[in-house]
Design a protein around this nucleic acid. Structure first.
Lengths: 193, 193
DNA sequence: CATCTAATTAGATATATATCAAATAATGAT
DNA sequence: ATCATTATTTGATATATATCTAATTAGATG
């Protein structure tokens, strides 16, 4: 779970109209005008909200003739609702990412897509390190990884895993010994400033 | 659970800074400046967010000398996080209230306090009916209530249960037979317009 | 093609809010 | 009383967003 995803979910649910829409859809699919009618709002307003609900994958659409039916994605609702509670249990993957400074968040927000893919590897050293530091936080300290595992992990974000893996080593985020990788303690990482 | 409470919770969690604060507090209480330092923000900003977190009862404070420690209210977080998921299971008490029109919501928002108490009984007939209709939706259709139960229910919102109970009858929201009360079907209710 | 219906987009407005710097308040220590 | 420390309030600014009307698009059907 990404911090931004969690925020997006709650921000989206933080509106009475959208909660009412979710409630209506929980009883079965509806088309736009039906929702507008039941809620006493105009169709453009409904479109607006459904757009946001679709952004977080909470509803999906199906056409029949020229009317669009909106369906609720129950499992997403369940799953996302739980995530915030898990913070408390320390079952959250947010751990490392929560301490990032606004400046870092900005860079991260700029280089990652909404669903957590790395768009490009930054050219500027400073930004590059911010991104790497962010990525490295998804790995566990004290765990020995096979090269294959590292590649798999990086590939979740970007195709060019070889370059990134190499940068991890160069900048002392990890070290390698006999083909086994391990995350270094933060004080060894390349300094960003 | 009131719709407005549910909305307030999600709206509050719909901000990265506040989620990060919640995460920090989940590891133990902290004072303002410590939070500001860890997040790279200024104290006024932290005050601002803590105010919102306190509004929804997610944090409480304790002083030691002249520094205020903020504590996370774990149980509230757990409970609220679950509420949105329960909509799906139809375990939600939102049921009736979800279909209220914006005009009605406005009146309701005006006459109820944040924690769901009725401030005063509206003098204008139209507004009064909106409030009664809202109240009546908290009772179940097809259930026979003792007068005492009705009184108890109304008292959750306003002290003058006798007046309101009488109005319920006058306006055909309920009927009484031999001291037993029951909710009428909506088509019998007094017309608002 | 013309027309109907449903959905969306564009543009406008009003409201909310996240953040900071500066000023003020509250508390404890000297 | 005076000072030091922490928290809060005020006021400003920039950004986001919920809603509407009017215009546009897209599909289906005659």
């Amino acid at each position: 779970m990404q911090l931004s995803r969690l925020v997006a979910f709650h921000k989206t649910m933080g509106d009475p109209t959208r909660i009412r829409i979710v409630y209506l859809l929980s009883q079965g699919p509806l088309h736009g005008q039906a929702i507008a009618g039941k809620l006493g709002l105009t169709p453009p307003t409904i479109t607006h909200h459904l757009h946001k609900l679709r952004d977080i994958n909470l509803v999906y659409t199906r056409r029949d003739k020229n009317t669009v039916y909106y369906h609720l994605n129950d499992s997403v609702l369940k799953h996302q609702a739980q995530a915030i509670g898990n913070i408390i249990n320390h079952e959250s993957e947010l751990e490392g990412m929560i301490n990032e400074k606004p400046e870092q968040q900005k860079v991260i927000g700029h280089f990652f897509t909404g669903d957590g893919k790395l768009k490009t590897i930054p050219a500027q050293r400073k930004k590059k390190l911010i991104i790497f530091e962010h990525l490295i936080k998804g790995l566990k300290v004290g765990v020995k990884y096979e090269e294959k595992e590292i590649n798999e992990y990086i590939k979740r974000f970007h195709d060019d895993y070889a370059t990134i893996r190499r940068e991890f080593i160069i900048n002392h985020y990890m070290y390698r010994e006999k083909g086994i990788y391990e995350v270094n303690p933060p004080e060894m990482w390349a300094k960003i400033d």
